[in-house]
Each structure stands twice: as C-alpha cells, then as structure tokens.
Design a protein around this nucleic acid. Sequence first.
DNA 1: ACCTGAACACCGTTCAAGT
DNA 2: ACCTGAACACCGTTCAAGT
Lengths: 211, 211
Amino acid sequence: MNRPDLSLVQPRKTARQARSIATTEAIQQATIQVLLAEGVGRLTTTRVAERAGVSVGTLYQYFPHKQALLFGIVERQFDLIEGAMRVACDQLHGCDLAVIAEGLAVAWLDAKTADIVASRAIYGIAAEFDLSGQMGRAATLMGEAFETLLASAPGVRFRDPPAAAFMLAALLGGSVRVVMEADPSGHSLERLRSELPRVCHAYLISASEPI
Amino acid sequence: MNRPDLSLVQPRKTARQARSIATTEAIQQATIQVLLAEGVGRLTTTRVAERAGVSVGTLYQYFPHKQALLFGIVERQFDLIEGAMRVACDQLHGCDLAVIAEGLAVAWLDAKTADIVASRAIYGIAAEFDLSGQMGRAATLMGEAFETLLASAPGVRFRDPPAAAFMLAALLGGSVRVVMEADPSGHSLERLRSELPRVCHAYLISASEPI
DNA sequence: ACCTGAACACCGTTCAAGT
DNA sequence: ACCTGAACACCGTTCAAGT
C-alpha cells in the first residue's frame, strides 16, 4: 500500500443525486457494523462493500482510501466530545475555579466513557491509523474554549492564560487516554474519576493569583 | 492477516548456536534500519529479511510474526525510560515534595525527548500496533516506584498513596504522549516543560497533609 | 451517472526442499 | 541445525466494461 494522501478526507465526489447519498450512507453504516462485529483487524474494503451491498469499485468512488472510512467515524466521535465540552464550558462560565475544575474533569470523563463501545472502537482505530492531524485540531479547539472559560472565573487572574488552558487540555486528554489504553478493564478509571478533579483544581490555583 | 497471538513475544527458538545469535542480531538491526530509513508504512518482513541478508523463512524461524519485530524495539525504548526514571527516583529519595515534583517532571520529559528519532519511530509503531500490554506493565512499574518515592518525602503524609502514585504516572505519561502526538513539531513541548512541574507539585500538595 | 468485478501489485506467513 | 524461496491466502486500489 502506498502511503495515501491524508489531505483527501472528503468524498471523491459530492453526493448530489439521491442514489449517491444512499450509497454513501450505506457504506458508512456498513463500516461501523463491520468494525463492531468483526474488529479493526478484519475491517476490509471488500468486507465493508459487501456489507453495504455494493462493489469495491463503488466504495472507492466515494472514499478515496480505506482511512477515509475510519476518519468519518473518528470525526463523529470527536464532534460528540467537542459538543459535550462546549456545553460544559457554557454551564461553567463565571463559576469559581473549584467548580470549573471539577466540572471540566467530570464532563471530560463522562464524554469519553459515555459510549464505551464506540470508545473501544475509536481506540482500536487510533492504534492502527495516524490520527495526529485530528488530535492536533481538537487540542487547539479545546485550548481556545478553556481559555475563555478560565478568563470568566471571578476573583482570579492567570499569569499565562494560554499556557494554563493548554496544560489543562493536555492533562485531561492525556491522563484519560493513557489510562484507557493501559487498562481497558476500566478498573483504574475509578481512581482517575476521584483524582482528576483534584489535579485540575490544584493546578488552576497554582497557575493563577487572587484579584 | 489473522490476528497473531500476542503472548508469543519470545523468539520461536532460543538462539543457542553462534550463527543463530548473529542472525537474530542482524534481523533486529535490520528492523531498526528499515524503520528509520523507510518509515513504518514500508516496514515489511521481506524488506527486513533482505536488509538482514537472510530469507523471509529464516526471519520467521526467530520471530513468530511481524509484531514481534517491533515489540523488541519498543521494549528497548521502554527499558531506557524505566532506567532513567529509576535513577531519578533514587536521587530524589528523601527530598521534599517541591523537589520531587520538579525532578520527576524534568526526568520524564528528558527521557521521552532524549532520542527524538527513536521516539518518533516508537510513536509511529504505537500508532500502528497494539501496545496496550506493554503500556499497562510500564504504568504499574512506574506506579510502584513512585509510591516508595512519595513515602520518603519528609513532613508529609499521603491520604491515599497508591492513588497519588498512580495519578502522577498517568499525568506524566498522558500529557507528554498527547502533546507529542498532537504537535510533532515540538513547539508546545516547551510549554509542557514549564507547566508540568507546576502541575505535579500542586497535585502532590493537594493529595497530602503535613506531619 | 453510477455501478461492476476481474486484474494488479503488493502483503504476512508457511513448508517442502535444500545445505 | 539452519536456511531458502516458491506458493498460498489474503490485502488495497484501479479501470475497462457494463447499465
């Protein structure tokens, strides 16, 4: 397999006609089904096409390469998490640091563990494909949202707001990812659930000063 | 490719004879060379065998599957990091919390960024293969080392020592991993370098109490 | 305008045959 | 005791031919 051009995430041809849309939809659905039923290791363009009721050729008319199949799913999951965090940020706007820290940690953990099946699939994908592009973009978005949230906290001023927001995102994202990967049983997730809010709170306090 | 049995990480036959040892060595060296010269995407059993000057059949006499080739390299890198952290733990034994926090964060960042070429290769491997087993084992080891280190800090007592040690490991491992993956340029690594010690210190204080 | 599926160039892995 | 490499069962991707 030659290294595919990862910038081509869009479908090769926009699905204008009804039939095209149906086909695209069917292929995406089939991807999820194969993924859940057989695992990443057995996710094959031919298998997906078969499950979608089309031929491989048709599949390649809408998705430039196998990775594009997966990117769609990952993007959907990322959007879900981003949405959940956006809601959390809105609700926490103007609250004080303790509430913000606790709120963000809980929201993040909930979002990541909400659909454990999807998460498992995503981590499987992440283990097999290069998602650094997606992750970088997501990190930047989180950083920005966190920065405005932190600015809204009353009675405190951050010495370096972008740095604090960035670090907070790295903290949440990193610790949850590493724990989910290292211990899929989810046992040590409980520990994370009790400790992560404390980490966030302690850090935010140390990165800011009163008034 | 059928999902290989990951428990078979050992070479298929122990290399007793001199010739065998040489062959094994050559294959391992060839793996690294191919990895560095051509990237994970072009790492092929045939290519490795060719570079090692043997046939594919010979390769499979010593390595049960392609993954075993990679596991060796990853294990070596993990050992390096584990060693560096063990040294750091020894040096920090008995120091107070501020020094321990700063020391661990710096040691971890240095170990992870020491051989940037190897790290890049490792992350490439990690993106393509399932390393959850290795990572879980490494996390447990770190947790234990951290726990005895934290117990040595004078004047403080941790409310839940295993939880604190675990969280510290997740913090270090997660944030560095996520930053390296999301921003391979290494630009935001500088930010991490200045913020991570603060995170560790703030958390350790909040998880302990005086006397 | 959309679909088909044989064909191509590659994989990982095996095993009868050699030295 | 160790090595070879053709052979096998799969991949991802393409493209001439169909409707």
